[in-house]
Design a protein around this nucleic acid. Sequence first.
DNA 1: GACTGTGAAGCCATTCACAGCT
DNA 2: AGCTGTGAATGGCTTCACAGTC
Lengths: 209, 209
Amino acid sequence: MKELKIPEATVSRLSVYSRYLTGVEKQGIVNISSGEIAEGVGGTPAQVRKDLAYFGEFGTRGVGYNVKQLNHEIMGILGLKKRWNVILIGAGNLGSALSQYRGFQERGFNIIAVFDNDMNKVGLKLNGLPIYAVSQMAEFVDKNDVSIGIITVPAEYAQDIADILVETQNIKGILNFAPVVLTIPEEIEVRDVDLTVNLEVLSYNIEKK
Amino acid sequence: MKELKIPEATVSRLSVYSRYLTGVEKQGIVNISSGEIAEGVGGTPAQVRKDLAYFGEFGTRGVGYNVKQLNHEIMGILGLKKRWNVILIGAGNLGSALSQYRGFQERGFNIIAVFDNDMNKVGLKLNGLPIYAVSQMAEFVDKNDVSIGIITVPAEYAQDIADILVETQNIKGILNFAPVVLTIPEEIEVRDVDLTVNLEVLSYNIEKK
DNA sequence: GACTGTGAAGCCATTCACAGCT
DNA sequence: AGCTGTGAATGGCTTCACAGTC
């Protein structure tokens, strides 16, 4: 095992491997080769082995990997052995969809509250989750050990929300769905999810032909 | 201008540049430098110039780029001068969110119908869009010149939906939100959007520190 | 003086190919 | 024989640095 710089693409793939392995595990399969994993996730065997080798020697030569054990290792690497408390800001359509998204729960992310500035929504529930006013957000974050915020407000409000989250000193990461670049101190992790970019790359690739 | 292989990352960034320029254009700004674009989208000036240079010489030395003209060029490159007819398969939460998502409309993607196999939903409207049965999908695609399908069904049904879309001979691209690898003939473009991967990379980056 | 366009250099990620275990 | 782990080779993307143009 080497303590090298890990490619971000490797980390993304580990996440995919882990979800795939979770499914395989449920089927009761005990061992799996890099080739089988590659097949299952749409990659190459060499890539799978290289990705895993950044973090240790998890396999057995001639045999492959123990599914359960490997998945456990990967989840440890990704920080998924514990559960994360997450809040969602923006009770619009996308926020509503994400608040109910099974995948987050299944992978250890508990969305515990939703925040919005629309006073018609505040006090109501969104898929069983309480909706609070943004003015209550900082206090809530600190009291409830929230470390990740998901921003699904319109672009023009995203920076304001980010500023409040940063101030809490508890938030360590932000998943931003607003199509705007956030200015955030670098000790806080930010990832942008851009839904239209994906459609536009598709459009480009189609037209190119 | 060279007809080289274009990095996919470049295409993604062009999409971001274009959306940014659309905003700048609305402010009535006429010219912009690579440095200003970089600032606006969170990149570097050299990157911006290199990305654009793959497709032509759009700027003026000493001056910069004409905002409106550059945006028009980029939209042409991305295939966004026309509008695309899009259908959405899966009238669940995520589908509902996407069907209403402004960003798609604004960028030239018309979602014209939603399909679902839940007979309690079929016949109803989702944010003003008709919900049809999946059995009607192939016919609809061919009659309405639909070229892109957005899959938001659970993982276990995604391949079946993809198979139907492929059969239509009209669909040219698929945006897949199901966390599963689709088997698709290579003449059809596929892009996967994986929501949990982003959260897990965030988790990894937070833990790493 | 300001800013683009671009070859060259540098850096990062993927693929290859094989030694090393079981 | 089968499959992992990994240095080396390759390929691709980004950054640098400067010539070219206005």
